[in-house]
């Protein structure tokens, strides 16, 4: 079994979804999460608050500094993710298709390093 991260990236400046669209997405994502659990593919997942809520911690020569803001000042920011477990990339891509449809955003699929 392989593990994959399915990440959802929000693009800065993209039109903000309406409340109604958000509610639809939440309901659809709930449904997918249940499907993932039933199929035994669910490992973990969730949505993140906006990047302005982020804090970065760095350790340099033994001293720790804490700074405000996301790690990278890019237009695309991680909005949420799933970690799933399945046989191969085709299965992961099939789940990613369902997830992208449910959350109404593109989904990036990345394999985890093997555990052994």
């Amino acid at each position: 079994m392989k593990q994959y991260m399915l990440s959802v990236h929000s693009v800065e400046g993209a039109p903000t979804p309406t409340d109604e669209e958000m509610q639809t997405a939440f309901a659809q994502v709930d449904k997918i999460n249940n499907e993932l659990r039933t199929a035994g593919a669910w490992v973990f997942g969730g949505g993140l608050l906006p990047p302005d809520s982020a804090t970065v911690v760095r350790v340099d020569s033994g001293s720790t500094t804490v700074t405000d803001g996301p790690f990278a000042e890019t237009k695309e920011q991680l909005g949420g993710f799933w970690v799933i477990r399945c046989e191969d990339l085709d299965q992961a891509l099939a789940w990613a298709g369902k997830c992208a449809q449910a959350c109404m955003n593109p989904v990036e699929v990345r394999p985890f390093q093997d555990e052994d």
Binding site: K2, E87, D88, L89, D90, R110
Partner: peptide
């Protein structure tokens, strides 16, 4: 290898 792209003939619906 890393992403485990499968080595199989796709099913009819794929």
């Amino acid at each position: 290898r890393d992403a485990a792209i499968p080595y199989r003939v796709p099913a009819a619906e794929e």
